[in-house]
Design a protein around this nucleic acid. Structure first.
Lengths: 224, 224
DNA sequence: AAATGGCAAATAATCGATATTTTCCGCAGG
DNA sequence: CCTGCGGAAAATATCGATTATTTGCCATTT
């Protein structure tokens, strides 16, 4: 069983509810700011109130859900401001993490990135739905040697918050064919070459470009 | 009602349990790695199982509690490695936050810091227990104008993780009289003068010194 | 003596029901 | 016409009990 395997059916009722709710929020199935009534979700996921409640508590950690004491839960609001904050923070934190990761690079790590990159490319080419997951794996693998689990966890969390905007902007998968492939390959090459400055520069540019593109869409799509 | 008021008795049972458990973990009343049995806590806090359970879920977000599916909760482990990671991350993030905060400084902010500083000093002088809280308020106020709530939340979380080590190292309050007062005043002055470089330098130095001092203690005290 | 299998106790997770709180709506008074 | 005040309806929070899972122990086997 893989820690990154998000699809499976096992685990406690709480875990299942957590995964499903998380997916629904990230993909926009549950709209931003939407009230999350226990009763409604209970029926929808066909489980008891307790697991729902706990799952929502967990999602609060991920900042995908807001809890208001005594008046329940709702999905986190979105805003252009929030989107930009996430983008900027990602740049700041991933720059640090990437440099640390490259500084601690190993052969195995190098191979992991190459592999992650290949899998991502293949999924994209074949239009597989798993692409989104593999894309995250690629990015997190880049950072994975940074000896700072908390930092990595922050990056992962910000990644998820960001991807939610990608879905909300519609066309979850359509990168408007700016050449994203090439950007990824560029980052990969620089990382494998252990060139921290170049890799970081490319990564930042990758985020900034994607961000600028999305920023416009986010505004209209969610009409903020 | 103040968002920073941690003492009160009101709110839901969950909130009360959350505050009390949090305090117990941070102050070391519940030891690192200790198993947190619902039944035991239920009696100790005189409340039902549900609030305990939810409070523990919330504490998981704060990384003060680890949850292991199907086998309950335990307080987060500590280690010198983890301590150093927190220290380093705080330096990285607070440097960013402080510079942003100073860049957005207002008159009101300036007055808030002066006030926070004064209250902290007074509490220290009179040996008040509230000192720890006011110390946190002072540090967070320094950062408070940074237009990045997520970043501030990370800083707050790291602050709490760090202070836990202070308690664990024993002598929660004894700063060994390295002149901490003077360090605080120095940071205050630089911030009020809007000198971001100087303020940041002093803040980092403040953390690094405290960290170096604690680092030794943490090792012995918790015998890691 | 060490390993294995399988009870029994302990503990966690979940459920269904109750208590508490908020929300919503209509009505009286200004 | 707006504002504020009940009071029912809805929703949340909490409890007590039940179910499922894990853990610890001891007999049995090799």
């Amino acid at each position: 069983m893989n820690a990154l395997d998000l699809s499976t059916e096992d685990g406690s009722a709480t875990q299942r509810a957590y995964r499903r709710l998380r997916h629904m929020i990230v993909t926009g199935d549950l709209r931003p700011g939407e009230k999350l009534k226990i009763e409604v979700l209970r029926k929808r996921l066909d489980t008891g109130a307790s697991p729902i409640r706990e799952a929502l508590s967990l999602l609060t950690s991920d900042k995908l859900v807001d809890r208001i004491d005594q008046r329940g839960f709702r999905t986190a609001e979105v805003s252009v401001r929030n989107f930009k904050e996430i983008l900027l923070l990602r740049c700041t934190l991933e720059d640090v993490a990437l440099r640390q990761s490259i500084a601690h690079a190993t052969q195995e790590w190098e191979e992991n990135i190459v592999l992650a990159h290949h899998r991502m490319q293949r999924a994209k080419a074949t239009g597989l739905a798993a692409f989104e997951d593999l894309h995250k794996v690629f990015h997190m693998t880049l950072l994975s040697e940074a000896p700072s689990p908390i930092l990595l966890q922050f990056c992962s969390q910000l990644y998820d918050l960001n991807i939610r905007y990608r879905y909300l902007a519609g066309s979850g998968l359509n990168y408007q064919d700016r050449d994203v492939n090439e950007e990824h390959t560029g980052i990969l090459d620089a990382a494998v070459a252990r060139d921290a400055d170049l890799a970081s520069e490319r990564l930042m540019s990758h985020y900034t470009l994607t961000g600028a593109y999305l920023s416009g869409l986010v505004g209209e799509a969610a009409n903020l």
